[in-house]
Design a protein around this nucleic acid. Structure first.
Lengths: 153, 153
DNA sequence: TAAAATGGTCAACCTGATTGACTACCACCG
DNA sequence: CGGTGGTAGTCAATCAGGTTGACCATTTTA
């Protein structure tokens, strides 16, 4: 099949959209809280760093601190995240995953992995390695490694 | 670099997000109307089919007919789309691209192509062909070819 | 030919975001 | 010290894009 120049971005969107939908179907089937991508990106940031504040999160997600604060409030209400006093800065709060939060991340990772596996079953794991490499190359070399993850709207 | 299982969906999101941002920067730099992905998906549908109604568009975008109608109203206001009386159904209107709409699609295709080219410059056109093939395989074989394109959030 | 289904519009509301104003605290420089 | 400017976080108002629900006009079906 020949490729129309400029068609790739659309296919990326369709693929990611379909994968996200698959995940949300599973989350809904489990009767979980309506976790959105922003929540997932939040989890991932809290896993990577131990000193994250709301402002850091806002920056990471590419939203205002008010929006980030709302997300944190939701996650706190569901028991996935805690706000602890900052050790040295009396204004700030440090965000951290609770045990429940950690457990959820492991669970979500497994669901994503299974979704990815269905792709691997069609094209082969080797191909997926290549794609991984190529996507990283775009994000790092073309997009400058900026990891803003807010949804495309 | 070894690949963590389940990492691909996140990378897809980041890549698509970065590409979309690149496009929007260009659109903004040209001083154009704030066209969103939904507008682009609309153009593409109108290119493919000559008898599209608002309900068809709603279905294609995965939104309600009211939401689709608003999008059409915007595009009509900007002169990209026309609503013509339906030849046989007195209730319906047929949507069609104006000349300005067609010109914009050509322009947008070129912009997407250039964004894609920057990726090709890093990983090679051959790799991009493979990715094209693999993405299509996911969309068709795993996601069942459903082409709902509404944004992920 | 009456009843059900469909295309489209209007209006009210929901939600996730924004902007703007404000408080409390920190950091630096005189 | 101490005041001045910057920063973390909250509250409140508003916006934008979407939804639900009611409705009319037309078309399709029984």
């Amino acid at each position: 099949m020949t490729r129309r120049r400029g068609e790739i971005p659309l296919l990326l969107a369709m693929t990611y959209r379909a994968m996200t939908e698959a995940l949300h179907d599973r989350i809904a089937a489990e009767g979980r809280e309506p976790l959105r991508p922003a929540h997932g990106y939040t989890f991932r940031l809290l896993l990577d760093r131990a000193d994250v504040t709301s402002v850091d999160l806002a920056d990471h997600l590419g939203v205002t601190k008010q929006a980030a604060s709302k997300i944190v409030a939701e996650l706190e209400g569901w028991g996935y995240v805690e706000r602890r006093p900052h050790p040295t800065d009396g204004r700030a709060r440090v965000l951290a995953l609770t045990d429940k939060g950690h457990a959820y991340v492991r669970h979500a990772d497994e669901m994503w992995a299974e979704i990815e596996d269905r792709w691997a079953a069609v094209i082969g794991a080797r191909r997926l390695d290549d794609i991984h490499h190529d996507l990283r190359a775009y994000v790092e070399e073309v997009a400058g490694g900026r990891a803003v993850l807010r949804p495309v709207w």
